[in-house]
Nucleic acid binder design. Sequence first.
RNA 1: GAUCCCUUCGUCUAGUGGUUAGGACUCAGGAUUUUCAUUCCUGCAACAGGGGUUCGACUCCCCUAGGGAUUGCCA
Length: 477
Amino acid sequence: MKKVRVRFAPSPTGLLHLGGLRTALYDYVYAKKHKGDFILRIEDTDRNRFVEGAIENLISSLQSMGIDFNEGPEKDNGYGPYIQSERLELYRKYADQLVESGKAYYCFCSKERLDQIREEQAAKKLPIQYDGFCKKLTKEEVQQKIANGEEYVIRLNMPKDDLFTFNDVIRGEVQIDSSQVDDQVIIKSDGFPTYHLAAIVDDHLMEISHVLRGEEWLPSTPKHIFIYESLGWDQPEWVHLPLILNTDKSKLSKRHGDFSVEAFVQQGYLKEALVNFVALLGWHPQTDDEIFDLDKMIEEFSFERVNKAGAVFDKTKLDWMNGLYIRKLDLSHIVDLAKPFFKEAGVDISDSTKFEHVVSCTREYINTLKEAPEFAQKFYSDPVFTESAAELMKNEDTKTICSYMITKLEALETIDAPEAKSMLKRASKDLKIKGKHFFMPVRAALIGEEHGPDIPLIIEILGIEECKKRFSNALNM
RNA sequence: GAUCCCUUCGUCUAGUGGUUAGGACUCAGGAUUUUCAUUCCUGCAACAGGGGUUCGACUCCCCUAGGGAUUGCCA
C-alpha cells in the first residue's frame, strides 16, 4: 500500500477557522494512525487576498491546538518549497504541457465579453460556462496576440461528452457529466496558477495519497481528474468532508461571526475542548464516548465513521464540553491558562497561593476561562451586595453572627477550610441559629451573595484579616 | 436556472432488514449540598413524505419534497 501522505493546504487569507481546524485534525490523526506524513502547504496563488502575517498565524494556531505537521515551510523533507508562490515555474511547465497536448488552450477574452455571455446564458436559463470562443484560435494567431502584448489566461479544454466517474471515500461513486464542467482557467493573466492547477501539480509532486478537503470541492473534482489524466498521473484518494454549518445551515462563514480558532482561544476555550468538539462535527467513534484526546482519536479514527451530511455548529455543547475540561484538567494547568484572563481584567493575582485557591473554586462554576475573573471578583474586591443579600444584612441575627465570627477570628493566626468548617459548626451551635438562617447571612456578609461557593472555602481563600474586615463592614450596613 | 451532494430527537450523533430506535448537549423534574454550581438519577423529544422490494423496512431501490454546495482570472 502506498505511503499515507496527507496535506492541509490553507490559503493565507485570514485566520484559521473551525472548518480548517477540523480538516487539519482529520489529516493529522489519519497520518498519525497510518504512520504517514502530514504536510502543510500554503496556497497563496491569489495575490489580492493575501493577508500579511496569515501564514505565521495559521502555523501558530495549528500548533496551539497540538496539531503538528512534519513537513512544510521551514521543514523541507525534499518536496519543497511548500509555499505555492515559490513554485510558479512548476505550474507554468505543466500548463505548457497541457497546452501542447491540446488539453488546455490560450484565451484572450475580455472580462466584458465573459460577463456578457454569462448574462446571456443566465437569461436563457442555460448552464453558465465559457463558450470556447478562443479554442478555435490557431497556434499562429495565439503567437501573434501574445506578441502584441494581449493579456491571456490558459483554460482547460474539458471534453464535452464524457462521464466523469470517481470514487469518493466518504460518498462512494460520484458521477458528473463533463458537459456540466466549465473550461476552467488554470493560469491567470497575472501568470499565477489557480487552485485547480496548483493543487493538483503539488499533490502529485508531493506524493499526496489522500486529498482531504471540504465538500464544496466536489463539483470541481472532474477538472482535477482531467488534469491528472492529461498529465498521465495517478489520482489520489478523494475524501470530501462534510461542511460545518451555521445555525441557518449555510456554510460556516465570517458573516455569521468570528469562528477563528484564535477568537475561541481568546474567549477562554481550551484546545482540548476545541479539538474534541470539532472532531465530533462529522465524525464519531464506535463507542458512545464523546470525551477523548488526540491519542484516543488517532487510535479510533477512520473515514468509515465520517458522516456525509453537514453538521451545524452548536456553541451550547462546546460550552458544556469546555466547562468539563476546565474542571477535569490539572489544576496547575488551568491556573496557568487562567492567568492572562485575570491580568486582562486588571486583577492582582500576585498572591499565587490565593490565586490557585480561587481558580480551584471558580472552575466549578464556569464554562469558559473568560468568565473566571467576573466570578472570582468577589475574592479580590469588596463584595457587591445583591438586593436580597443587602436586606439580610439588616437582620439582627446577622449582626450577632458577624460579631461572633469577628471575635473568634481574632483569636487565630491562620485558618484553613476544615478549621473554618468546625468553627462555623460551633458558632451555629453557640448562637442557636441553624441551617440556612446561619449560613446564608455568613455567605452574604462575605461575598454579598446568598448563593455561591462553600463557606469554609470562602473563608480559607479570603484569609482571617479579610474576613474580619468584611464581617465588620456587614455590621455597619 | 443547471449540476452535484445530503436528509434519525431543536442540535451533534449511534444504527448497515427483525431494536421498547441508543448516547450526548439543551430543557424539565428529582437526589446530594446550609445555598448555588458540580455530580448522579429520571423525563420530554427523531427515522421528511409517497411508492416499491421483502414474511419483515430507519436500514435496499425509485419518485417527490426540503436543505446545502457549486456554477469566479477566490480558495
